[in-house]
Simulated assay, not measured.
Amino acid sequence: MTAAVVAETTGASPHPEPQEHSPKRKLTGYWLLLPGGLWLIVFFVLPLYSLVATSLYDPDGSVLQGYDMTWAFSNYWHALQDYWSPLVRSLVYGAVATFICLVLGYLLAYAIAFKSGRWKNLMLVLVIAPFFTSFLVRTLSWKLLLRDDGFIVNTLQFLHIVGADGRLLATPVAVIAGLVYNFLPFMVLPLFASIDKIDHRLIEASSDLYSRPAVGFFKVTWPLSLPGVVSGTLLTFIPAVGDYINAQLLGSPKQRMIGNVIQDLFTKANDYPAAGALSVILMLLILVMVLFYVRRAGTEDLL
């Protein structure tokens, strides 16, 4: 007998409605979210609250005497007035380093995805190999490479690209080079993940339709790789702007970035309100820029 006949004889519905989930089953999802929620509260919400509160302390207080909460919003204005130069410098250095990483990373990711063949996994390992050593050690190695009597400077002087008294250390070139080297893998990996998913037959189809390679790239490859471009630029730009190791080891006081200023205010000057205000300003500025960039870039495929 079919289900319909049985239903007619018994009076039951041939398609019984699903039973409602029990309250215990409904709570299972919330219990699973609980560890992650507690982690975010302890290590994100509370530190963020503490940072914002610190930025509103009385600027006339001190570490020894303590700070009073006076809701001193003027700290933000004074921080911008006093430290706008390293803030702008950080944004410029971060943008230049991100652009260089995008160019180099795209070429490398494209080569790994389409040209590496059976060496693909090995090349990916080589991309992330620098992560096996300390960030500090990698930056110090660049300091040795760019030293005044090093091979790179001597070669550039021989080619008359750099003057006889020219140098690379303690210049913006050295700081940006360090940023590019340290954050290039953050650009390559998202780009590779996006480019590797592109169906190569689409690229072949563009050439079959008599499209020039450059036109085919900008009509097919580039649009399909945009999710990786957006992810890579964000993963590179955000930490590059807040970095202070490269500027401290490869630059001079003229190349100080906002991270160096915040570190000195917290550890040397003990000016917690100014340091907190600068940190909040930097965070909000990057947040606004990221939201604008993501909105303009169009990232439906990232969701």
Results as ranks from 00 to 15, higher is better:
4 A>G: 07
12 A>M: 12
15 H>G: 13
18 P>V: 05
21 H>N: 11
21 H>S: 14
28 T>Y: 08
33 L>M: 11
36 G>V: 02
37 G>A: 12
37 G>T: 06
44 F>M: 07
45 V>L: 07
58 D>N: 10
65 Q>F: 09
66 G>K: 05
67 Y>V: 01
76 Y>I: 00
78 H>A: 03
79 A>N: 00
80 L>S: 01
84 W>Q: 11
84 W>G: 13
84 W>E: 05
86 P>F: 02
94 G>K: 06
102 L>W: 13
107 L>T: 11
108 L>M: 14
109 A>M: 05
112 I>F: 09
115 K>L: 09
115 K>Y: 10
124 L>Q: 07
131 F>T: 02
132 F>Y: 12
146 L>P: 03
147 R>Q: 14
154 N>T: 10
155 T>V: 06
158 F>Y: 13
159 L>R: 09
162 V>K: 12
171 T>D: 08
173 V>I: 14
175 V>P: 03
175 V>G: 03
183 F>E: 04
191 L>V: 02
193 A>S: 14
199 D>K: 13
200 H>W: 10
200 H>D: 12
202 L>Q: 09
205 A>T: 07
220 V>F: 11
223 P>T: 04
224 L>G: 06
226 L>N: 14
227 P>R: 09
236 T>K: 08
261 V>M: 01
264 D>W: 07
266 F>C: 03
271 D>W: 00
271 D>S: 10
274 A>L: 02
276 G>K: 05
279 S>A: 13
280 V>L: 04
280 V>M: 04
281 I>T: 09
285 L>E: 01
288 V>Y: 08
295 R>K: 15
301 D>K: 15
